[in-house]
Design a protein around this nucleic acid. Sequence first.
DNA 1: CTCGTACTAGTACACACGTACAACTCCGAG
DNA 2: CTCGGAGTTGTACGTGTGTACTAGTACGAG
Lengths: 181, 181
Amino acid sequence: MSGRRDPEGRRRAIVEAACALIPEVGVGGLTHRLVAARAGVPLGATTYYFKTLDDLSEAALEHIARSSAEDLRAWAEALRGSADVAATVAALTEEYLADRPRALAEMELYLAAVHRPELRPLARAWFDGLVDVLGGHAGPVAAKAAAHLVDGALLHALSNERPLDTEGLATALRALLRPAA
Amino acid sequence: MSGRRDPEGRRRAIVEAACALIPEVGVGGLTHRLVAARAGVPLGATTYYFKTLDDLSEAALEHIARSSAEDLRAWAEALRGSADVAATVAALTEEYLADRPRALAEMELYLAAVHRPELRPLARAWFDGLVDVLGGHAGPVAAKAAAHLVDGALLHALSNERPLDTEGLATALRALLRPAA
DNA sequence: CTCGTACTAGTACACACGTACAACTCCGAG
DNA sequence: CTCGGAGTTGTACGTGTGTACTAGTACGAG
């Protein structure tokens, strides 16, 4: 696989450790030492690959945002062949929530973006992508509203550590996506 | 007003300083020294009134949650005499967002509750109250969905520092609250 | 008046932090 | 082979942290 020397692998290991840590301790709770320990590298390694702690957290959040946005490809495909768009979106949301840490990290990203404008594009990636996907099956206003609804449902499911009410979400999405207006 | 001694006033000043600080630095960024400086009291005062930093942040978050929940009384009243419930809720949401720091603090509360279960009742106060208020004008499923929608819209408005799309929100709420289904 | 208790205020301590850095090791270009 | 730069590692430094603690102050009960 890799000899003792493997800069790229090391960088990735550090980023992945940070990604795993963010849902546990929050973006603000991230620490060079914490990440280094989790990644199994000495302290010096994290400061070598990332000049500053903000750089490190940004790299991790970018990784997370990319991962979430990539999921949306599967959403688009599932919706293409779906008879009941609302039910499918609800089911996909439930699936998305199954990877709780990543969903949590996405929420952390939203809040981190409030005080770090450079993170806003990352924070918008998931939402904009979702609106895009939904836009194929509803008007722009309904798509945006549906995305808000999904994120609101996710937020509360995460915050209360409760399973998603998939049926209720589907019902609501059906109402939102109804062509009438 | 108050002589040099005023324990209750001091406690309140500390809590209010913490409330003002949370939207700025986040719950995790709160510090005894930061709060003390903002409140204009010596460091010893914050540790005297709150045995631990978590106690302090919890008191602040409780204050915020109470303040938000109290707003809902006005929501209920405004809705009682409203012909267009959806538009009224959208307008009230916009109003709520006008106090950006408090809305932000509420979101901080949501995320803080993830890792501090003792905060969950506080985090649920706003949401449950909102569902309650909306429940007077729609079925329970629609009310919950509408509350999710409102919170999702708030989250993104806060995260992107953008004004609320009040009209779009009203349209979506109208679709959600339609009695059909 | 007087005395104990609630409160005040400043300081101290041990610790974790971000970052800087110097010494060391490896490896590929010449 | 040699040598320079990239990668590695442990340590050091200054700062800020939560919390504990001591000494002092005001004030209401007796």
